[in-house]
Amino acid sequence: MIDSTAAAPAPRSSAPDAAPLTAVVTGASSGIGRATAARLVADGWRVLAVARREDRLAELAAETGCEVLGVDVTSDESVERLVARTEELFAGSLNAVVHVAGGALGVEPAAEADLAKWQRMYDINVLGAVRVTRALLPALRTSGRGDLLFVTSVAAQEAYPGGSGYNAAKAGEHMLAGALRLELNGEPIRVIEVAPGMVATEEFSLVRLGDRAAADAVYDGVENPLTAEDCADVIAYALGAPHHVNLDLVTVRPLAQAAAHRVARHQGI
């Protein structure tokens, strides 16, 4: 159970004895997705946590009591299983989809782009989010109180050298959220975007760079980079706010980071 000094509003329902709110969280095997699933369970939500790595999900289920399902957001067949499991668990009525599945691959300049990496980033960050949204939107509509929350990145807002592929993918996800907000206007479905800056998780930089020493160097000298739990706090607050309150876009950075490419670093920290 995640302890936070900035507690989110308690999940609200129409009556004191109403069923708890329900959520699907993608990318839940590690990092922000894992922390978000744990935080929502601690706040009283029923959570279906999904990711590709079922062994990691089993550990999360044992620790938190959430439901889990192995899902690859780039696969139509896999997402169909997600729809069926959501129907089984939540009777086709779903309150939130938290899109965390994503990630960055490589830091090559655009002139040396590895197009396979660019394709993979687009498939996960953009098409994966579209695929899951399209599949679960009927359940969000049925609930009468739905949320689509996209975890993007400051990379969607600020280009930086070596970031072009990830910049493009996250900018695509940012535009997806913006278009959905317009398309769903008038329906009881909020579209929320949380854009983290530098977050020190166990895998993000390692997957991107492929080397532990290089991944650790990303955070060298940075005092208190964000944690996955910091991001989960923001997500939980956004989802727990009164449903007429929509946090369109929340950009969250550590104090040490003024921009994607400008970070204060100190010796001996």
Rank of each mutant, 00 (worst) to 15 (best):
R253G: 07
G172I: 12
A260R: 15
S164M: 08
P254Q: 11
N246Y: 12
Q257F: 06
T227K: 07
R190L: 08
V222I: 14
E202F: 04
C231K: 01
G172Y: 09
G163D: 07
L209W: 08
L182F: 03
P196T: 00
L184C: 03
Y237H: 08
C231A: 11
I235P: 02
N167K: 11
G197Q: 13
V194A: 09
N246W: 12
L180G: 03
R190E: 07
A215N: 00
T251D: 10
K170D: 09
Q257V: 02
E187L: 11
A256P: 09
E173A: 14
E187G: 00
A259R: 15
E203R: 15
C231V: 15
L247Q: 09
A236E: 01
I192S: 04
A236P: 06
L247G: 06
N167L: 13
L249K: 14
A256F: 10
F204C: 01
A177T: 11
A195N: 09
P196H: 03
N224C: 02
D211V: 00
L247K: 05
S205G: 07
L239F: 07
A228N: 02
T251E: 15
R253V: 04
V234K: 03
L209S: 02
A259C: 11
H174L: 15
L226G: 15
L182V: 03
T251A: 11
V199A: 04
A217P: 09
V194I: 15
I235W: 04
S164I: 05
N224E: 12
A177I: 12
V245K: 04
A213K: 10
R212N: 00
E229V: 11
P254A: 10
A256M: 10
L239K: 05
E203Y: 07
H174N: 10
E187T: 01
G197I: 08
V245C: 10
E223C: 04
I235C: 02
H244Q: 08
A214V: 00
L176N: 09
R262N: 10
R190F: 12
S205T: 13
L255Q: 12
D233I: 01
R253W: 02
T201P: 01
R212I: 07
H244L: 05
S164A: 13
D233P: 01
G162W: 02
G163C: 02
A214S: 05
A200M: 06
R181M: 03
I192A: 04
R190C: 04
L226I: 08
N224W: 01
D220A: 15
G178W: 08
T251C: 10
S205K: 11
A228V: 04
G240V: 04
L184K: 08
H174R: 14
G221Q: 03
R262S: 12
E202N: 12
L226A: 15
G240E: 02
R212H: 03
T251Q: 14
E223Y: 06
A258T: 14
V245R: 08
I192G: 05
A256D: 07
P188Y: 11
D230H: 13
V199G: 07
L247Y: 11
